[in-house]
Amino acid sequence: MALDPQGDAPEDLSHAGSVTDKAIEYMMEQGIAPISIASALLGGALGLMAREMEDKAIANVLRSALRSVENGELQEMRRQGAEPPAAS
């Protein structure tokens, strides 16, 4: 898995984010409740991380997500009506 030029994220992160966005869009069109979609995606992500990553790396991903919440990044997205960025 190659990193981007700054070394921050895998180069295929954008593609994975696009595929995830399409899956979310599809589930919304099917009438699946947003909390069910989010819970399923989070559970799947945690399962994948558990199979592929060490606990320390998982904790770093979760800390990064928590910092985004604490810094108000998600509130800003809500105000702008924007899609959330893919996790890094």
Rank of each mutant, 00 (worst) to 15 (best):
L66G: 02
L13N: 05
A82P: 04
H15L: 10
R63P: 02
H15W: 12
L48H: 11
E70N: 15
P84M: 03
L62T: 10
L41M: 13
P85A: 00
A9M: 08
M53I: 03
G43V: 02
A50P: 02
A50R: 13
D4K: 01
N71E: 05
Q80W: 07
A82C: 02
A9L: 05
E29C: 06
M49V: 06
K56C: 03
V61F: 10
R67F: 02
S36W: 06
V61H: 07
H15T: 09
G43A: 10
R79E: 11
I35N: 10
A86Q: 06
L62A: 08
E52A: 12
M28F: 06
G31R: 02
S68I: 01
Y26P: 07
S14E: 09
R79Q: 12
N71V: 03
D4S: 08
P10I: 00
G17Y: 03
L62C: 11
E11I: 13
D21E: 14
S14M: 04
L42D: 06
G47S: 11
G17V: 03
S39H: 07
H15Y: 15
E73F: 06
V19M: 04
E70G: 13
P10H: 11
D8M: 12
D12E: 13
V19F: 09
P34N: 10
G31A: 01
A23C: 06
E54M: 08
Q30C: 09
M77T: 00
E29A: 11
R79G: 08
L66T: 12
G7Q: 06
A86H: 11
I58G: 06
L62V: 15
E52W: 04
L66W: 13
A16M: 04
M28P: 01
M27F: 04
S68D: 04
